[in-house]
Design a protein around this nucleic acid. Structure first.
Lengths: 354, 354
DNA sequence: CAAGGTTGTGAAAACGCTACCCCCCTGCCG
DNA sequence: CGGCAGGGGGGTAGCGTTTTCACAACCTTG
């Protein structure tokens, strides 16, 4: 159970070093064959009680931990799933990861965490790594790569679930929020409070997610029969600054509005800041509603009314679909699993003055 | 390059399935031995230019990706490091993970993310998993287990770096903030503003980290020659609620104080809430300083003055130490690497009234 | 031109496990 | 009492790599 290894130091002294103990040593210690040890460890095939005891004793004595690498090589299953995301320090993602994480834990899977910096090159390289490591499945969060490219790099053998990104239908299984419905809820809330002139700080161009939220805004106006004033639709970039700039533009243009629907919380916070800077009170003069319900939302002043995403649950569901597919109890026929948003009313919205 | 695999469907149809392509198929395609392919792939040993070309061509044609599992089995190195943490959704950790992540990326290592829920049992089980998977090294964040136990479960062969936890000196390499110095900076700031009666909301009992921050508070009072009024020292639990409760106690006791040093930002925010509820203005009536500088700190009203931890840099450094040790270019003789905190002055502190 | 490098390549032995195949018992049934 | 089912366990062939070791062909050099 010890192997010799020579260390050439200054004085060329030989030293015994404890090497990782293998199934063979356990077998020898318990006076059985490696096959039997394997049977005991995996509960495959019948083993006499007395033998089982000898083996487990040997396992404990030698502090034996089966080599998962060797195991994976023969079983061609790693019990590992990869999760790809743009940036773990973006406050929206950790909760998502936690959902995936906890379900994976339950099912005895481990998570390989790769970051992509939202760069297509890094995404491709991460996918190669995952393919090389033969992960059993992959969860891709907020990616930028096109579906065909993903399959090209990752191959077609590894199950994939896409989280928090709309994809061309028919390419992958997607788990995401019903953004359109969230936008509708936000608009309904404002309209029910009595607002009519509602401005919108949109997300960055080109993101399916922005399109859907802004689409919800437009649809709500249509339902209202309110003519959509294009000057009330400002392009933002999901950042605080973007929200401030949008409000500056609205005020500079001297436009009439009583409420703002921002495409995410950070924009909303920026918008509130800018309004306050110009002496406007929220919600007394202008109501503001955000989207996402990040932790911040409850802490700013006034606390932000917003649309909550069930982030944790979405992560969990994505992991569940993936692992079911991996274990063959489920299939990943491309489809979209939508989650329902929830309106969280706090202090930043109120009926319009007068 | 294709292997046959029989699928027994309803109609017992046989299907060709693309199996993961191996080095043998590449070798056959390029008309060389597997040894040569390996040499080309790893740049080990000389290969004729013409052969190299044939091989790389075959690799591309077959979309071959070496099986890292098999590779690990023979090289007994997985190019993977494990990171253990209590809860990824705690806003303090993602930044830490990002530091570790990015350095690992640079060095071509991948991260295995395990969560422990701050439970010793889960910690032990996570360590077993990591040992089984033969990770090259482990970063442990904010753990609760005792050092001896860690070594017992993980074995002594896997290098470990402990992040953000004080350990008995001589057990592990530790990377952490100089909490005592941070506390001193906080206290110095308050004292320089003119405060003398300073209350402290401590962290939970039993955490080395709490002890150090509270130690810094006590030491500062000693330096000041101020008699430490034990009634000004409240036990918190790092939560917002803890901060509120502490302030309630202070006010109920009718104690005289002009400033509060909270052991973390969340406590500070709770304290501010409670003060405001009782009609006290921050910082006009009472100054409050926090610790950590989480994202929230800059967004609450008033924006929180606090002590910043260089979280990202600490993560990076921990990963660097670990990987250096793994690759044999550095050693992990137990020691502590301290990082310097930084005072961030915002709006929650000011000179005392009068 | 013989002796001794280099360079380029293949055969085959690990790495630590699981799974298959086979054999030896023992007990039971016809 | 022979046959046979089935429990219990050993031997060993892979899994897909890397890494010796061996060897052939070629190039030096004296």
């Amino acid at each position: 159970m010890y192997r010799r290894r020579w260390i050439y130091g200054q004085s060329c002294v030989s030293v015994y070093i404890l090497m990782s103990v293998t199934i063979r040593e356990v077998a020898r210690q318990a006076n059985v064959s490696t096959a039997t040890v394997s049977r005991v460890l995996n509960g495959s095939g019948p083993v006499a009680e007395s033998t089982r005891l000898r083996v487990t004793q040997a396992v404990v004595d030698l502090a034996y931990e089966p080599n998962a690498v060797a195991r994976s090589l023969v079983s061609s299953a790693t019990h590992t799933i990869g999760i790809l995301l743009p940036d773990i320090s973006n406050p929206f993602f950790p909760e998502l990861v936690k959902g995936v994480q906890l379900l994976a834990d339950d099912r005895r899977y481990t998570l390989l965490l790769l970051n992509t910096e939202a760069s297509a090159i890094r995404e491709a390289s991460a996918l190669s790594t995952l393919r090389g490591k033969r992960v059993d499945g992959v969860v891709m969060v907020g990616l930028t790569t096109r579906p065909e490219q993903i399959k090209e790099v990752l191959g077609t053998e590894i199950p994939v679930v896409v989280l928090d990104r709309a994809m061309r239908p028919g390419s992958f299984t997607v788990v995401r929020l019903d953004h359109g419905r969230g936008a509708a809820m936000a608009m309904t809330h404002l309209v029910e409070l009595g607002h009519r002139r509602i401005a919108h700080v949109a997300g960055p161009r080109g993101l399916e997610l922005s399109r859907q939220r802004t689409g919800g805004y437009r649809a709500a106006l249509r339902r209202l029969g309110e003519p959509a004033d294009p000057r009330l639709l400002l392009r933002g970039d999901f950042s605080e600054l973007g929200g401030s700039v949008a409000v500056e533009q609205l005020l500079d243009a001297g436009l009439d509005f009583t409420a703002i629907f921002a495409a995410n919380d950070l924009s909303a916070i920026g918008a509130i800041r800018a309004l306050q800077t110009h002496g406007l009170r929220v919600p007394d003069d202008v109501s503001v509603i955000g989207f996402d319900d990040i932790q911040l939302a409850g802490y700013v002043t006034p606390a932000l009314t917003t649309i909550r995403q069930p982030t944790y649950a979405m992560g969990r569901r994505a992991a569940e679909l993936l692992i079911d597919a991996v274990e063959g109890t489920g299939s990943l026929t491309p489809r979209t699993v939508l989650f329902e948003p929830e309106l969280v009313v706090r202090e930043s919205t109120a009926p319009p003055a007068r």
